[in-house]
């Protein structure tokens, strides 16, 4: 067995303490990234070592809340990877068109940009009214921002470029109203979206989905947790259901690789195979 370094043992014990005390399970996250965040939090928390931080958070829920905030990575944008959205419209939408009721799950939706991006394209293709979008995350701060759908106006330039590159049919400015430093998305985009808290590390299956988005979430997990989550998706997908991962994530190293067939492999779009 590989001998663990003291700092790694400290980190593992901190994650164990968080789990036992507060129920948040980061134990199977990829360690390098979480460690970087913990270390950068030490000085803010006034701690010299990870062990000192462990003591602090065990006794102070406020201190834990601060650490939790630091541990979440909510970086996202609208129409991230425009080529992905082009492929989605070309290959996946025609299949959705055949259905009367369409259920979509955004797992790890963060502050909502990705969900609204899809809502916009579903609207443009005349599909939105048949859809229900379930958007979930473990981070309540992010979810509340997602419900608000208000974003810094300075981001609109980049979102507009993405929208155009992704093959948007209208003008992106039709979808928001700018006020001072903020841009408020069109309320109509929200009407078929439900935001809720769901933890991929411990919660269960999410109903019969036709389309699942889980982009740039699996990269934060270790292999074991990745397998659990992909298993969850397998069990949550309806017949012919489609799974979309982030541009550097793949189903092909998971133990469920045989359950999925390629739809657009370059864009990490997969479809569940027919059960024989």
């Amino acid at each position: 067995m590989q001998k663990l370094k003291p700092e790694t043992i400290e980190l593992n014990m901190l994650l164990e303490a968080i789990f036992v005390r507060y129920g948040y399970d980061f134990r199977n996250y990829a360690k390098a990234s979480i460690k970087r965040r913990v270390l950068s939090h030490l000085s803010d928390a006034g701690c010299q070592t990870i062990s000192a931080l462990q003591h602090q958070i065990l006794y102070s829920p406020q201190a834990f809340a601060k650490l939790l905030f630091k541990l979440s990575v909510n970086v996202t944008e609208m129409f991230r990877d425009p080529d992905f959205y082009l492929a989605l419209k070309k290959e996946v939408f025609p299949q959705l068109l055949k259905r009367q009721r369409i259920k979509i799950w955004h797992a790890g939706c963060s502050t909502g940009e990705e969900v609204y991006s899809l809502a916009i394209f579903l609207t443009e293709e005349g599909l939105y009214d048949r859809c229900h979008l379930y958007a979930t995350d473990i981070d309540d701060h992010a979810l509340s921002k997602a419900r608000d759908a208000i974003y810094p106006v300075k981001e609109m330039k980049a979102f507009t470029t993405n929208y155009n590159n992704a093959g948007g049919r209208a003008s992106f400015s039709d979808y928001y109203r700018a006020k001072y430093d903020f841009a408020m998305l069109d309320k109509a985009l929200k009407r078929n979206i439900t935001f809720s808290n769901h933890n991929l590390a411990c919660d269960s299956v999410f109903g019969e989905m036709d389309l699942i988005f889980c982009r740039n979430v699996l990269i934060y997990f270790n292999r074991e947790l990745q397998d659990r989550v992909i298993g969850l998706f397998k069990d949550s997908l309806a017949e012919n259901g489609v799974l979309c991962l982030g541009s550097r994530e793949t189903i092909r190293v998971s133990k469920y690789t045989d359950v999925f067939e390629d739809m657009v492999p370059s864009q990490k779009i997969y479809r569940i195979k027919k059960q024989s």
């Binding site: 990829a30 390098a32 990234s33 970087r36 990575v73 970086v75 740039n216 990269i219 934060y220 982030g246 550097r248």
Partner: peptide, 8 residues
């Protein structure tokens, strides 16, 4: 092994 992240 490698990990990737989309952190800030």
């Amino acid at each position: 092994t490698f990990s990737l992240s989309v952190d800030e």
